[in-house]
Nucleic acid binder design. Sequence first.
RNA 1: GCAUCUGUAGCUCAGAGGUCAGAGCAGCGGUUUCCGGUACCGCAGAUCGGGGGUUCGAAUCCUUCCAGAUGCUCCA
Length: 588
Amino acid sequence: MQRIIARLNQEAEAAFTKAGLDTSFAKVVVSNRPDLCEFQCNGAMAAAKTYHKAPIAIAQQVLPFFEESPVFSEVQAVMPGFINLKLSGEFLAQYMNDMQADEYFGVERAKEPKTIMIDYGGPNVAKPLHVGHLRSAVIGESIKRMGRYMGHTMIGDVHLGDWGLQMGLIITELKERQPDLVYFDDSFEGEYPEEAPFTISELEEIYPKASAKSKEDPEYKEKAMEATHLLQQGKRGYQALWNHIMTVSVNDLKKNYQKLDVEFDLWKKESDAQPYIPGMVEYMKKEGYAHEDQGALVVDVKEETDTKEIPPCMILKSDGASLYNTTDLATIMDRMKCYHPDEIIYVVDKRQSLYFTQVFRCARKTKLVDEDTVLTFLGFGTMNGKDGKPFKTRQGGVMRLETLLNDITEEMYKKIVDNRSIKEADAHKTAQMVALAAIKYGDLSNQASKDYIFDTERFTSFEGDTGPYILYTIVRIKSILSRYVENGGDTKAGKILAPAGESEKAMMLALADFNATVENAFAEKAPHKICSYIYDLANAFNHFYHETKILSEEDAERRQSYIRMLELTRDVLETSIHLLGFSAPDKM
RNA sequence: GCAUCUGUAGCUCAGAGGUCAGAGCAGCGGUUUCCGGUACCGCAGAUCGGGGGUUCGAAUCCUUCCAGAUGCUCCA
């Protein structure tokens, strides 16, 4: 469906044409003075110079042609040359009815759907998720859902960190503790056990211990590096252990992401990219892209327009080992080969900006991607505590994501039980939903690229610009609708009528903005725009609700119109929060 | 040192050339013959970091200074 603003632009263009003026000046925008008008056209001021006329004279010149249009109920030319516009109620009501009939509530889906891979999550094997993983998961999930809603093929890849020293460390520590395990018996030729010799909590305890030891004890580190090397060479026993580590760890990660309502299409790992490396290195050498520099193999990626020195992209370390760059480039090869995406989006910490600049340039220069393959770096800021410093536990340690989620769920549970009589089991489930809304909305309502302060008290509040407030509004609408149905009402009867009052019209205008909001939010990869949209819509509804008797409205047609409006509002709100990655209960 | 980003009300954030700079929280004052008051309405609170410039018009563009965050080949 055409955006309402696009329709208004058409009207404006027609008016300017009729007035003998260039249509390039005919631009309508949402008013920033809602007390004066709903939309405004500022073209007269821009045109003043071209036509050597006073802006107000130009405004008055086109005004009659705006008046002709059926979509406006009120048009005015005011000093210095603004054209103030109000929409006709009938036009708006028609737009509402069309919107309701549309499966996507007016959103224009992509005419040429793209295949877009989105790399987010980025957890490491054998390490628990901590708060640092939150933003990537939450932002990435939202963008993935927005892209899907727009009709694109979105492929979410968790891009698991399973390569490197960490694995060697775990194997080494395991060997110290349980040297008798068959995995360490080189003469063993039988089948290894199916059961892992450790649980996830043991694994999570082993890794930090091993990591600490390796920092203090060079000999231990040597052993871990050796183990890593043997693993990468394919040593049977280590491979079997690696499989166990993967299985135990991935199962746990999946459980945790599920609690966050985050779902990946692919569980690809850094190790999956390793087979591409030898060929890739060979190719880069042969084509002359890569050269040796201080013993390392690098690709120059600096460009003339750079305002600063961009260091070359390193492909192999001087000891011949691969590194993060190598793996990421190989991953790009893998992705191009398997999915041939039009775009790859990386949702990662913004501090990796320079690094990704290097990788992207290298991939482009060495033609690992097509010329028109878009590589997007979506860097997000740090999640800070109330003191403005990176979020920590009270003890100053890294907080687990699970702990954060549990704490906030507990908090929500108390609030829910305090205020409403609700069944124990329901309260628990509801608390989880509200907690997720609190966390995700709190995160997403900030611009992704900026650092933000995670304020538990503020995010979990039912008042103000918060997730719980949005859910409360949805629940309230649902409650009214179900009461209507209980009393024998038919929610599908009738249609939306022209608004009778100001607050009703304001709500319609808010609803009508849904398509433009979603389209823009996805184009700019800015979930916070959806947040501010639903906050406005929720406010518009609550305002309307407070001055309108809905169920006791005596005029049957008007009552049906109200009900249909509520349905549309509920649907738009629920669709929006789905795009953000959470959902609303029926009661709370 | 160089580079990037950020600086808007007491606090947390929107706004990215257009009419008095918007919210929320905190503060103060209201609204209940109640469809969910975890709501709604109002008041108060801002030389948009400072200076200079471009423009009919600048929080928004340019420039400079100040402050903070971050990053600058063999970690990821």
